[in-house]
Design a protein around this nucleic acid. Structure first.
Lengths: 374, 374
DNA sequence: GCACATGGTTGAATCGTTACATAACCCCCG
DNA sequence: CGGGGGTTATGTAACGATTCAACCATGTGC
């Protein structure tokens, strides 16, 4: 039976002091005398008083929350980013409001309005295409915005991203080195900047190898999830024999897992008939039917850094300098793109060395393991 | 250069009306005359007025948000639950504050306080052990609480759960039917109710088969993630030959994937040397090195239903009836527990039928696919 | 004995919005 | 012409916490 919540006023009455004093006990305990403080604290406990955040926020002008808008929480990549954000925010006593844009303008706009109405300290966002103008306005109106996994086109905004062009380059350079010449790209919608960049990197790698860009067939997917990957895999498998690629580079691991699943179902050998390289190196990439080569991004780090920049901007105030942080991706080579493995499932102790980046052991990546221990 | 946000007052002045009228335009547009409304709307647009949620909340006494406290967002099971919650909340114009308890009392308590201070409409929570008394108090103080993936011990609270004992029973019954007699259980901490229940279901199944409960060796893990699974897998592999189980039932899929990974690394054949059954049937179970048999839970449905119950309680008010919804889990059989597969990677078109529940095709589950299309 | 600092406490004003009682106005009926 | 009835618009009092100038004792120094 919800009894009315008790306010600071009643606490004051009960402790025989003024509301100002109660407020001081709450916010500046050091300025109130020992015995008064104790009396007030007793009253607080006895009445079960709970501060009203709305009232504090109204007074303060800003809420103690930050917004996080991602394309899809169901994607483990964003989950890890979210973890990083939440840990960081929590340390500053802030709550995180989580929003899924599903890469839809309408949903994104809806959530941005909601967050602005909430007067959040700031917004972390992986924007959909063409959102920049809107975000710039938001920022001008006073809500700090930090781009996550996306590079700010201007100097007037913080952003944390990973060099996706380099990532695509790494992946395809690796495939070329393994002798592949017909490489397909799976990803979409191409309107998503990350997807376009990764494809561009792939083309750059081909270019350098003297292969024309037209030589990169693109299977555009409607989304970046496993189901779309399966469909793409089927499309590849159904190509006439002459046009079949010998390697596939996927814009993310979910797609790669879908492609792999479809290949497995159709008994098309991976990597012997077709090699696969994914992107993100989510934890499940290493555990896949055929352990997946992938381009690793510092996911949790991405989230933490973004949150830090946001907090610096929101709390630090005038001294804040906008920064565009760009991380470098790292290629992790596993079985799905191994040139000609002796045995399909053998664990490989040593590796030939002339690879762009040394592949860590298949036991998974350090950051994930550390976090998992908690 | 953050210019001060504009208030309803300035809008009123600019449009030459009173604040009350502006408020009416915002909340009850039908009571204000056509041309006045237009004038006000023009002023709103021109000044870039954004409602202040804090002020509304203060007035209303409650915020337009709900809290979601899960054990770990990095676990795809909770991710899918969160998706369901968010979709449902969003339809009612509510925002979701996401919190990770990491199965730690301290963190849970911290977040519960934060949510209560925020005067959220209600809290959805997968509680850590022994939180019931605290949650009951919270509820008595006026914040509706709905338990997610956990059964309420009392009638005075809504809850949405899945019958974990039945799930454990299904898994082990299946393994027994496949001829396994030495079955190990991997999971922990055992203080987590879900883990304990699944183990209890396993024991029930053994019991029915006339096998004593002591016959279920338990490898207790410190957490429910892939890393812990790998450690458990190593522990199993290191057992003296005579004590090695022929099948392992894991308390969730992350553990199962870890165990599987370790077995693969050590070239222990799955399912031939050791069969594995997981729990949750996350999307990645089907894509694993050896497609994972698992006990499926209606993840997204769980979230949606919980959110619906919460909204009914929070908005419906007096007419609300507390309900304890219990879903039934469903066993999905894949290769990791197949008795003696003809070839390790073959896709099986038809299946022998006397299984508790018919396994759906390996193409994945419907709800996930549907959502993925968006 | 006076000015003045020190430490503690008070009370009112304030944040932006909503609800509600009241007023202004027009139209039509008696 | 006076007075209901309807439609619109107004002004103000909350909501609960924070802030800040003012105030009150005490004590200290000269």
């Amino acid at each position: 039976m919800a009894n009315a919540p008790v306010s600071i006023r009643e606490v004051a009455a009960h402790a025989g002091v003024s509301v100002g004093t109660v407020s001081n006990v709450l916010n500046r305990p050091d300025v109130v005398a020992e015995h008064t403080r104790r009396r007030v604290q007793a009253a607080i406990k006895q009445l079960g008083f709970i501060r009203n955040e709305s009232a504090r926020q109204l007074r303060a002008g800003r809420s103690r929350t930050i917004g996080l808008v991602v394309m899809d929480v169901a994607n483990p990549f964003f989950t890890d980013v979210a973890r990083g954000v939440e840990d960081e925010a929590s340390e500053s006593g802030l709550a995180v409001i989580l929003c899924n844009s599903d890469d839809q303008q309408a949903k994104e706009t809806h959530y941005l309005e909601l967050l602005e109405e909430h007067r959040v300290q700031g917004i972390l966002i992986t924007p959909v295409t063409g959102a920049h103008e809107r975000l710039a306005r938001l920022q001008r109106r006073g809500t700090p915005v930090v781009l996550v996994d996306s590079r700010s086109p201007t100097r007037g905004q913080c952003s944390v991203s990973v060099d996706d062009v380099l990532g695509g380059d790494l992946a395809v350079t690796h495939l070329l080195a393994a002798g592949h010449r017909r490489i397909a790209f799976v990803g979409g919608p191409l309107s998503i900047r990350q997807v376009a960049d990764r494809r561009e990197g792939a083309i750059r790698a081909l270019d350098r190898a003297g292969i024309s860009a037209g030589q990169l067939p693109v299977i555009e997917t409607p989304a970046l999830n496993v189901a779309a990957g399966r469909v793409a895999g089927a499309a590849i498998a159904d190509l006439p024999a002459g046009q079949q690629p010998t390697a596939v580079f996927c814009a993310n691991d979910l797609l790669a897992l879908g492609v792999l699943q479809e290949m497995t179902t159709r008994r098309i050998a991976v990597p012997d008939s077709v090699a696969i390289v994914g992107y993100d190196d989510i934890e499940f990439a290493a555990a896949a039917a055929v352990p997946l080569s992938s381009v690793r991004q510092p996911r949790q780090q991405l989230g933490r850094t973004a949150a830090q920049l946001l907090l610096d901007e929101a709390l630090g105030g005038a001294s804040h300098q906008h920064r565009q942080v760009v991380f470098e991706p790292e290629l992790v080579i596993r079985q799905s793109s191994q040139a000609s493995p002796a045995r399909p499932r053998a664990a490989r102790a040593a590796r030939r060395s002339p690879r762009p980046v040394a592949a860590p052991p298949a036991t998974g990546c350090a950051d994930t393991a550390a976090e998992a221990a908690g």
